[in-house]
């Protein structure tokens, strides 16, 4: 298995506070990796650095051997790294299908962009199906529920055919039912993609995670399978033990 993502010695400082302090992370092709850790552990910051939103003070992020640090966000996306956000950001005034079409069209040259969309491409239709939004295709995305927005975002990610997907808390704020469906979606996506998921929800983690990386105070605390991580007393101390009561609902 080739490493798709190699993070080395990453350090991010916000106003003197080290949000990431020497993080190393390697994700292999085809992996489904969960990133967990208490609030402020640096999970989202790590994703922000990989996708070019935040500049690190030191360290490197290599994707397929290409250095990502210093590239602008859209360049990183064009190399094949896609992400979603904690609060699903979709374009509310555009229809669901236009949201997907826009995501799918980022490689189109300007002259094709200046044409009108005719019908729905197979790719977009497939993403509508996967996201379970076919019936809502022509409605503005603004009418979607929180869960549907997350699925739309994941669909928008899929049509971009990224080699690496970064999902930032995909089930935060979802109902049990919605979590279930998102989990199913995740399993399906993970079969054909390399995925990194930041997640808080322990139940979700136990059900769907394979490899887990635990971050704590900007450092990697532990890496391993779900069982290994759960058995680690240090992990229990900083995270699992303390949040067990909150997470299991």
């Amino acid at each position: 298995m080739n490493p798709v993502l190699e993070v080395r010695g990453l350090r991010v400082v916000f106003d003197g506070f080290a949000a990431l302090d020497g993080v190393d992370l390697t994700v292999a092709e085809g992996e489904l990796r969960f990133l967990i850790g208490p609030n402020g552990a640096g999970k989202t910051t790590l994703i922000d650095v990989i996708t070019g939103l935040t500049r690190p003070a030191a360290g490197s992020v290599r994707f397929d051997g290409v250095e990502l640090v210093g590239l602008r966000e859209h360049r990183v996306v064009r190399l094949g790294v896609g992400r979603t956000f904690q609060t699903a950001a979709v374009f509310e005034e555009l229809s669901v299908v236009d949201n997907l079409d826009l995501a799918a069209g980022f490689r189109l040259p300007l002259r094709s962009l200046l044409r009108r969309r005719r019908g729905i491409s197979d790719e977009v239709a497939a993403a509508l199906e996967t996201a379970g939004l076919t019936a809502l295709a022509d409605r503005p995305a603004g009418v979607l529920s929180h869960g549907q927005r997350q699925w739309l975002e994941i669909g928008m990610l899929l049509v971009q055919r990224p080699r690496l997907l970064l999902l930032d808390e995909p089930v935060a704020g979802m109902s049990r039912d919605e979590r279930e469906r998102t989990g199913g979606l995740l399993e399906r996506i993970a079969r054909t993609h390399t995925v990194v998921v930041v997640e808080h929800d322990m139940e979700f983690l136990r059900r769907y995670a394979r490899e887990v990386t635990v971050l704590h105070q900007g450092r990697v605390l532990r890496e391993g399978s779900v069982a290994e991580v759960q058995d680690d007393p240090r992990v229990r101390e900083v995270y699992l033990g303390r949040s067990k009561g909150e997470a299991v609902t």
């Binding site: 859209h74 374009f91 962009l113």
Partner: peptide
């Protein structure tokens, strides 16, 4: 459509690769 997307969520559009 892209223009409206930029108007409403410029930062999100970057992560669509534009």
């Amino acid at each position: 459509a892209l223009l409206v997307a930029v108007r409403d969520h410029e930062d999100r559009v970057r992560f669509l690769g534009y």
